[in-house]
Design a protein around this nucleic acid. Structure first.
Length: 317
DNA sequence: TTCCAGGTGCATA
DNA sequence: TATGCACATGGA
């Protein structure tokens, strides 16, 4: 089903159940946007689009319609994807949880972003907050990106290579500054398109050779730049989701912990109870176990499911 | 003042 | 190979 019409310099979104700018831009996958009165301004590499939201439709104003049709993944039918996720398991608790998540983030779409932007942005994301990541990325663009008139492009590889560790620190990158400098040196002649045809495991292995890229950051790059939907990035929020709904220690499976259940979430969840997950201490091993379990549940819908769960948990917390 | 955030690198055993 | 601490920063 087509959710959009294309006109000159304008894309019109007819089905708002499949496109909500706030859900798409503020669900943690994207850092370069500006909130305006009736919508958002969106930047990717050296391109810009303005999203205007109306009561019954939304429009994307841009001089590169083709680019943003792909960027917003407009050719994919998210109604079908949401139904597929809901139909994965028949248990009442699974359906209730996922329905809550999908109802909350109903207009999410997984963006097709630039690999270099994702690599740099998600190295900065380590142990960081989303608004601080946005701030640092914005300063990098402002100081080293090409002036496009009314905005700054994301810096080219060549321009990135001129940024010093001190400058990255000045932009708020903190201890990640040295990882950025090191990785930027490594990628000057790297073929980012090579990863597109590799399976997620192999592509992740290659990405993790770069400084500042571990399992989670690699998964984010594979999901948000390469649309590899079989990955499930596990961060602090997904760890909370897992401990709350999926683990043996979850508040949903322990009567004693029911006090922790948020008022809005009174359902139970009993799909998987196999992995013992620590509820307190972070460990790489623990997150890998969580990742393994969640990808075994959601399969090739992992990337979509992860984003609905992440956005729901982060906003409801 | 302490905790925490879309984690990873590295020293140590 | 496994474990656990250090790392910047600023808002809550």
């Amino acid at each position: 089903m087509c959710v959009y019409n294309v006109e000159k310099n304008r894309i019109v979104i007819k089905d708002l159940t499949q496109f909500n700018a706030r859900h798409i831009l503020e669900c943690g996958q994207f850092f370069r946007y500006l909130k305006i009165e009736n919508g958002y301004v969106v930047y990717c590499t050296n391109k810009k689009a303005i999203i205007i939201e109306h009561e019954n439709y939304a429009e994307i104003l841009t001089n590169d319609v083709e680019f943003f049709v792909n960027f917003f993944d407009l050719k994919t039918d998210y109604t079908a994807i949401k139904n597929e996720i809901l139909e994965l398991y028949q248990t009442e608790n699974y359906v209730k949880l996922m329905k809550n998540c999908i109802d909350h983030g109903y207009g999410i779409r997984l963006l097709k972003q630039n690999p270099v932007e994702m690599l740099i942005s998600f190295i900065i994301s380590a142990n960081n907050r989303i608004n601080r990541i946005q701030h640092t990325v914005s300063l990098i663009c402002k100081n080293y990106g090409e002036n496009m008139g009314d905005f700054f492009a994301f810096p080219t590889l060549k321009a990135l290579a001129t940024i010093s560790e001190e400058d990255f620190k000045k932009f708020g990158a903190g201890f990640r500054a040295k990882y950025l400098v090191d990785t930027i040196k490594q990628i000057q002649n790297f073929d980012f398109e090579l990863l597109r045809d590799l399976n997620s495991l192999k592509a992740s292995e290659i990405l993790q050779k770069f400084k500042g890229v571990g399992n989670k950051v690699a998964d984010c790059i594979l999901l948000f730049a390469y649309s590899k939907m079989d990955v499930f990035p596990v961060d602090t929020w997904i760890e909370k989701v897992y401990n709350c709904y999926f683990s043996n220690n979850s508040c949903m499976t322990s009567q004693n912990k029911s006090i922790h259940i948020k008022n809005k979430i009174k359902d139970n969840f009993d799909v998987c109870l196999e992995i013992e997950a620590s509820t307190k201490n972070f460990s790489e091993k623990n997150r890998l176990l969580i990742r393994k379990k969640l990808t075994s549940i959601f399969g090739n819908l992992s990337g979509y499911a992860q984003q609905y769960l992440f956005y729901y948990k982060r906003e409801m917390n």
